[in-house]
Amino acid sequence: MRIRHQASHGDEKIELQMTPMIDIVFQLLIFFIMTFKIAMPEGDFNIKMPLASSAPSIVDEIPLPPINVRLTAGPDGKISSIQIGERALKNFDELHQEIIALVGADAGPSAVASEAEVELDCDYNLEYRYTVEAITAISGRIVENAIVPLVEKVKFAPARPPG
């Protein structure tokens, strides 16, 4: 009657040991929760900062003079005035419109925008966020979730002394 004996054992349900698996699963869960970090996407603005060359190179064509954008700051570091050339502007939207008016909205390899250059002249104590805001207004705009570049060549004027 050995066979029958075995058969009766085989009927029993095999119980899996769940405890070690759940232990490990929770360990993994804790690890991933601890290492979780929400990273916002970051992007870069290229700026052109060539060294002032002592011997000017001979160029065939005369480059366009840079568009001068002047940003002044109040004593608290907040923006107090925006000037493009000699014209005073109210806000960065206006600066953006002015840049579009100057270089044209058409994009392409022969567009003025690819040749034009903007020189930012900022006060020493101007908060950096306004500088980036100005660069944003100058360098492009968003049309239907795509970036249309405007002026890509941005450079800084020599730094003004503090005070």
């Binding site: 870069d44 603005f45 290229n46 900062m49 060294l51 020493y124 101007l126 908060e127 950096y128 730094a159």
Partner: peptide, 28 residues
């Protein structure tokens, strides 16, 4: 964001004097 722009320019200047030429400004 609250740094003074002049300080950023000074940092760029130091880099230029060392011999670095390509710069990008990072924003969120």
């Amino acid at each position: 964001a609250a740094t003074k722009t002049g300080v950023v320019q000074e940092l760029i200047r130091s880099c230029q004097e060392t011999g670095f030429e390509k710069f990008t400004l990072r924003a969120k």
